[in-house]
Structure formats: structure tokens, C-alpha cells
Amino acid sequence: MLYRPGSTFFHRSDPRAKLFTILVVLALALSTTRLDVLLALTAIVIVALAIGAGLTPRSYWKALVVILPLIALLTLLQSLVQGGPAAFSLGSVGFSRHGILLGLALGTRLMAMGICFYGFSVTTSPSDISLALNRLGVPYKFSYLTSFAFRFLPLMQDEARTLLTAMSVRGSDEGTSPNPFRRGKAIVRMLFPMLMGSLKRSGDISLSMELRGYGLKGPRTCLRSLHFHGRDVALVLTMVLVVVAAVLVQWQVPNPLAVR
């Protein structure tokens, strides 16, 4: 589970305002392929998280490193399939400048969305997400599932760790091997026992939930409540300004990286 309790601006913000924020970032990132706009959006997300949540790139660079090969692959593919003047050639193969820029833009889009989701997950407790969704009209049975999933992820991690330990004490080094293919084999070996364990556990979980009234018809009460404060209004207004600025830049400012 990524969530870390804290008292930063984003920790104290209403989860509905934060949901609105990530939806805006998502919409902006998906609505443009301009590299300059996407780089500016990524920079805004990074700076906002650093100031509003105390999250510097140091805390999430490991996750970013994972998507770098994906960005490289996207850029390579786009440079090969897109037309236009070549940025450079290797033998008879030309690498389109437009394709390279498009690939980098798609990669930056992934980064902006990934960092934003990371910030949201670190600063918002799963139960707050569930409550916010419920308040926004999602039926409780479905909104509860988000917090339920977060509850059982650590359990699955523990189980995987136990299985890896059990394998290594019986002489297998697949789980700790630096070779990704051998590690992959360890994961395949773990799948079946983990699946069986989950199936066995699911019956008991559903029983204990039913015994405590999950799914009962009739009104539910809720111990916690959400309050939309001034800071949440400020966050929403800031995001509206970001949208307006992005639309203006997109339409009014010529793309300096555009292929002429």
C-alpha cells in the first residue's frame, strides 16, 4: 500500500478535490501530443507534489526508471512509423523527427499521469478514496471495493514473500536471482499456491463480511465524514486555471518543436 499518513496540504485536502485534480491532469495529458505542453504539465505535477505533499522525485524515481524502457521503445517505434523529415539515418533507415517528438510526448504523458497517481495514492487513504467515490454517487458495494483491494494487497505481498522464502530455504535461488528470466520462473511457480490460497481465503472473508452486515438493505451510517474546506476550493480553482492556461497555450502559442 502506497499511502503514508501525513499532514501536508494534499494529505489534508478533500479526496473529491484530489480526484478532480487527477482527472484534470489525466484529461490534459490525454488531450494533447505537444511535447512542450506535456513537459510543462509534468513539471507542474512534480513541483506541486514537492510543495504540497513533500514528495520529491527521489521518492518515486525507482518507479520512473521502470517506464524509461517503455518510453524508449515508444519513441523508437514512432520514429520508424511516422512520416516527415528524418532527424537522422542509420544506413537506409530514417528516423522521423516528428515520430521522435511524438514518442517522447507519449512517454512524458505516461510520466505525468504516473507521478500524479503516485502522489494521489501516497496522500489519500484507501478508505477516503472509497468514501469520496461513495459521496460522488458510486454505490457503496463498488466504492468499498477500492479500500478492500488496498487492504488485501499487503496480505498478498506477505504471502508471496513467504513462498519465496520457502523456495529459497529448499535450495532454489530463482526468487533472488539477478536474471529476470529466472525470477520470472519463480513468479510462475508462486502463482498456483497463491491462487489456491486466495480462493480458500475468499470463502472465509465473504462469511466474515456477511456476518457483519455487508450488503444489508437499508440505510448505512458512516463514522467518518468529508468536508470541503477553503483549501479544497482553492485546489479546484487552481486546476480550472491550469485547464484554461493549457487550452490557451494549445491554441494560441505556436509549438516551438513543430516540424516545419
Partner: peptide, 24 residues
């Protein structure tokens, strides 16, 4: 382990009562 279905202890204690509509 199979009976803890919420992420925080306080919510775990409240959850069954919330399902049954117990006043706050």
C-alpha cells in the same frame, strides 16, 4: 486475517455498525 476487511483499526470497529445503520 480474514476478518479484518478495512485498512485502519478504527474503521474496522465501525464497519459492522455502519452496515447496520447504527447512529453515529
Amino acid at each position: 486475517e480474514v476478518q479484518l476487511v478495512n485498512t485502519v483499526v478504527r474503521e474496522e470497529l465501525a464497519w459492522g455498525m455502519e452496515n447496520r445503520g447504527v447512529p453515529i
